[in-house]
Design a protein around this nucleic acid. Structure first.
Length: 968
RNA sequence: GCCGACUUAGCUCAGUGGUAGAGCACUCGCUUCACACGCGAUAGGCCACAAGUUCGAAUCUUGUAGUCGGCACCA
């Protein structure tokens, strides 16, 4: 068999994904078991404009690992994929393109033409991200791919809007909103990021009190502000009602400079007397706090800015048309000229910025659509408080953050001044009356006229994303009672046979609620909370049980990746360099929820691991003639166990004579690993599973098991064959024909079978490599499939995930094998420390008690080979020349006579070093065991354990000291 | 201002009320017939600091310092 020496992932990645997809392995319909339990997960829809980044790669890896694992366990799985329309960023991108290509703006071409452009753009570039998802190897069901702007989902959004409006949860109102003057749209609180502004200043402005006698005395009230330009829109000055300094001024008036307007001095508890001067200018149309004061005092709302943050006519002729910062300078200049500028102080302010374009947000009085959140909020809080749902992984700190955010939730601004998105289904007649309806026809009926104009705004993208887990599964809010107490029966005991793809209602019944959501921290409020709220409101069910919050992938210096810093790491480049599987292992190998700095070295180590798996398999395949994967070959433990259960006295006899210690040991390790991996995945400890598999495969399987059985397995040369037959070994019928003995065939079968199971366990993490290798193994096929997939073509994707068989755990084998491993390691240590060359021949003397003598004798060939020794002398005691290197293990004393080779000085210091190390531990043990309160209060098992360890070490120290003395 | 997380080997990170672990890097030795993306053997840590609880603390509590994050306020 021709197999390359180094694994090259590229071809496998391309080839297998196509096959998986075209054979329908990803679709839940592949599962033929009518009683199969379901497992479902929806992808957090990436932006249609987006490209894959490490955060995606991480969350996708975790979701796919879970899905593949569950699928192999026989669950009917659905991993639902799709993208969202990303209102603002897509519109920006297409606008930019339009400007570049045609030197035109959206306004130039009009709404319909522009929307058409966006669709064109989407059809051309919108599959970049989905192609990248294919590259990642995600086992998502492409037949159910969704897009938030497609017809069905748009209808759903409209239905939801109408329903919420009719119930009174959506209203239109004039409020101060976060206005981005560059994007010219409103933003929700969550799309705004507070950032420290540079060069912040606090300007102290003198406002003259306007009554005649005050003017005569030039009575001034000084206010402090960071935004002097807004004074043009002031409609009051406020002081604290308890502030003795200003009590006499309340109720009087200010003659507002530069405007010739008179504004009142009012008292409001909002004002803190200690801050600034204790007097606050009030600009209700340009500041959220001022707006609230304005509401309380019935102040005039004077809007002085345009949508692009230039001053409008209301700001006065001198200022009209000025950009806001130019206006600020001019206001300050004018105040200075008038002698009304008291002082300017440096002052650190944090200002809201548009998350997307970084422009400073302008709080602006504006008419928008809002969603009242109280009812849905209360439902979500109840679910959390009473059922601890959804469960967050890790729970700290996300549960608390989520709860606190819900508790302080305010109304949600859902309209956006964009053209790309779900246009708000509201129509206005000539008098401005609003009619919310599913269609213009319906609105016309309500209005009694067809002379209607639809609201120009669209809905926040998150409005549609909030419906994602159920809208994508066919819920559209139109069915009878669909929105009442929940569409679904509490328990759906009727399993869906094979759900036709088109029958999306069955999808809802089968796959909703989903099992788990995997997403990033910053999305908890934007998306997770909203899905919970809408899920409860519209379906009566929580949309998912568990929420895994993954960590942030940082750059190698621990910095967040960002476009501005240009320190992003492109997953596609990493794939190209190290392979998708190695990248997935790296990502899954990071602790759940913890940020981690990206290191190429880490991926490299998993690339090496992939190569190790490749080569271990290569070795097994080179030596696989006459054998194939056969699960029965591992079952001798079961025979032994059942015979033990029947009361046989020596169940060990049931073990076939050729089941070696190493066989029993590796099978025990395999089953323990399967158990631990299962537990790790159940609790979403992906990194734990990765560690377990890495350790099992590399250390246990490759370093020890393969090395132990190598001589048995490799093809014998003709000369060796003849020698063996002459020696009476392996001269059995058929042996000459194949060149193999039955024992060899059995060994080959066994190693293939163990390898095959290890590869299956690795599949959810490393899908491509494992499929590539599994296809090459003889004896794999649909017989290894989970029975639910019996008709499917051969693929590891649908093979059964290995389960732990407790009867195969063999503690005796593990401790015996450990003794052998320790023995070999100690001899190797002597070899290395004493500079024994490969070619040097030496004998190893071993003294041990009877049971371990047997163990060592039984494994003599392997010990000789792995320690590179020529001969073993095993007995109760040993007699060796003075010129010997010595060592002790927990079960044996070792001596290697090195006449002429030994460096006594070196050997002395080597032994002294070992004694030193043991003594440190011994001192600690002695101290602990002589502590009366420890012996009295600690659990007896613990005390015994330490006593045993103490005896063992004392013995070892004693032996080593004797050996050391003998050198002198 | 409030809340939270983190601080473990040179680096990146696991882990745990009872002998400190991994990967990478380092040192030494191997052209051993699956793999040099390899094999073998070492070395390396008072688990940030201080106090407390406990027979026992790196692990639990409290405080301190540093790093990072979230929220609130910001005239």
């Amino acid at each position: 068999m021709e197999i390359a020496k180094v694994y090259d992932p590229k071809e496998a990645e391309e080839h297998h994904y196509k096959r998986w997809e075209s054979n329908g392995f990803f679709a839940p319909e592949i599962n033929e078991d009518p009683d199969a339990e379901k497992f479902s997960v929806v992808i957090p829809p990436p932006n249609v404009t987006g490209t894959l980044h490490m955060g995606h790669a991480l969350q996708h890896t975790l979701m796919d690992t879970l899905t593949r694992w569950k699928r192999m366990q026989g669950y009917r799985t659905l991993f639902l994929v799709g993208v969202d329309h990303a209102g603002i960023s897509t519109q920006l991108m297409v606008t930019r393109q339009l400007k570049k290509d045609e030197h035109r703006s959206p306004q130039d071409i009009g709404r319909d033409a522009f929307t058409e452009k966006v669709w064109e753009w989407k059809n051309k570039y919108g599959n970049v991200i989905t192609e990248q998802i294919r590259k990642e190897g995600l086992s998502v069901d492409w037949t159910r791919e969704r897009f938030t702007m497609e017809d069905d989902l748009s209808t759903t959004v409209r239905n939801v809007f109408v329903r919420l409006y009719e119930e009174g949860w959506i209203y239109r109102g004039t409020r101060i909103v976060n206005w981005c003057p560059r994007d010219k749209t409103v933003l929700s609180d969550l799309e705004v990021k507070e950032e420290k502004a540079r060069d912040g200043k606090l300007y102290y402005l003198r406002y003259p009190v306007s009554e005649p006698e005050a003017v005569a005395t030039r009575l001034m009230l000084t206010v402090a502000t960071t935004r002097p330009e807004t004074m043009l829109g002031d409609t009051a000055v406020a002081v604290n009602p308890d502030d003795e300094r200003y009590k006499h001024l309340v109720g009087r008036k200010i003659l507002l400079p530069l405007t010739n307007r008179e504004i009142p001095i009012i008292a409001d508890a909002y004002v803190e007397s200690e801050f600034g001067t204790g007097a606050v200018k009030i600009t209700p149309a340009h500041d959220p706090n001022d707006w609230e004061i304005g509401q309380r005092h019935n102040l005039e709302m004077l809007v002085i800015m345009n949508e692009d943050a230039t001053m409008n006519a209301a700001a006065g002729a001198d200022f009209e048309g000025l950009e806001r910062y130019a206006a600020r300078e001019k206001v300050v200049e004018e105040f200075e000229k008038l002698g009304l500028l008291d002082k300017i102080e440096d002052y650190d302010v944090t200002l809201p910025h548009c998350e997307r374009c970084k422009t400073v947000i302008e709080p602006l009085l504006s008419e928008q659509w809002f969603a009242k959140m109280d009812e849905m909020r209360d439902m979500a809080l109840k679910l959390l408080r009473e059922e601890n749902a959804p469960r967050f992984f890790p729970e700290v700190p996300h549960k608390k953050v989520y709860m606190m955010w819900l508790e302080n939730l305010r109304d949600w601004t859902i309209s956006r001044q964009l053209w790309w998105g779900h246009q708000i289904p509201a129509w206005y007649d000539k008098d401005g009356n609003v009619f919310v309806a599913h269609s213009k026809e319906e609105a016309s009926e309500k209005a009694g006229t067809t002379d209607l104009v639809q609201d120009q705004d669209v809905l926040d993208t998150w409005f549609s994303s909030a419906l994602w887990p159920f809208s994508t599964m066919g819920w559209n809010g139109s069915g009878p009672g669909a929105m009442a107490t929940g569409l679904l029966a509490a328990e759906n005991k009727n399993p869906v046979a094979i759900a036709p793809v088109s029958d999306s209602t069955s999808d809802l019944e089968t796959f909703y609620p989903t099992d788990v959501l995997v997403t990033g921290r910053d999305i908890i409020r934007l998306w997770v909370s909203r899905m919970v709220m809408t899920g409860l409101k519209f379906t009566g069910k929580k949309p998912f049980d568990d929420v895994i919050i993954h960590g942030t992938v940082l750059d190698k210096n621990g910095q967040r990746m960002s476009k501005t810093k240009n320190n992003g790491i492109d997953p596609l480049e990493v794939f190209a360099k190290f392979g998708v599987d190695a990248t997935r292992m790296t990502l899954a190998g990071s602790a759940t929820g913890i940020d981690f700095a990206w290191r190429d070295e880490k991926v490299e180590s998993y690339r090496n691991f992939a190569n190790k798996i490749w080569n271990a398999t290569r070795f097994c395949l080179i030596n696989s003639d006459g054998a194939c994967v056969d699960l029965k070959s591992l079952e001798f433990h079961l025979q032994a166990a059942s015979e033990a259960a029947l009361g046989r006295e020596e169940p060990a006899e049931a073990v076939p004579p050729n089941a070696s210690l190493a066989d029993r040991w590796i099978i025990s390790r395999l089953n323990k690993t399967a158990k631990a991996v299962d537990h790790a995945l159940e609790t979403y400890q992906f990194h734990e599973a990765v560690q377990l598999l890495y350790h099992f495969f590399w250390d246990d399987f490759c370093d020890w098991y393969i090395e132990f059985v190598k001589d048995e397995i490799v093809n014998l040369s003709d000369a060796e064959m003849v020698r063996d037959i002459e020696a009476g070994i392996g001269s059995v019928p058929g042996a000459v024909a194949t060149g193999l003995t039955p024992a060899q065939i059995q060994s080959r079968t066994r190693i293939l079978t163990i390898l095959e199971q290890a590869i299956r366990m690795l599949h959810p993490f490393m899908p491509f490599l494992t499929e590539e290798l599994w296809q090459k193994l003889p004896g794999t096929g649909s017989s290894l499939h989970n029975p639910a997939y019996r008709s499917a073509e051969k693929t590891i994707m649908l093979a059964d995930f290995p389960k732990c068989n407790e009867a195969m755990i063999d503690e005796a084998a593990e401790s015996e094998m450990n003794a052998v491993i320790e023995l070999i390691t100690k001899v190797r240590n002597i070899r290395a420390e004493m500079n024994i060359k490969s070619a040097d021949k030496f004998t190893v003397h071993i003294a041990a008690d009877g049971a371990f003598q047997q163990v060592f004798k039984a494994n003599e060939p392997q010990i000789l080979k792995l320690a590179k020794a020529e001969k073993l002398v095993i007995g109760e005691k040993m007699e060796v020349p003075k010129a010997s290197a010595k060592a002790v293990t927990a079960n044996a004393e070792i001596a290697v006579p090195l006449e002429g080779l030994i460096d006594f000085e070196k050997e002395r210091s080597r032994l002294a070093g070992q004694i030193e190390k043991l003594n440190i531990e011994l001192h600690r043990l002695n101290a602990q065991l002589s502590n009366v309160s420890f012996v009295e209060k600690a659990p007896p098992e613990k005390v015994n354990e330490l006593r045993e360890r103490q005896t063992e070490i004392e013995q070892q120290v004693k032996t080593l000291n004797t050996n050391l003395d003998a050198l002198n």
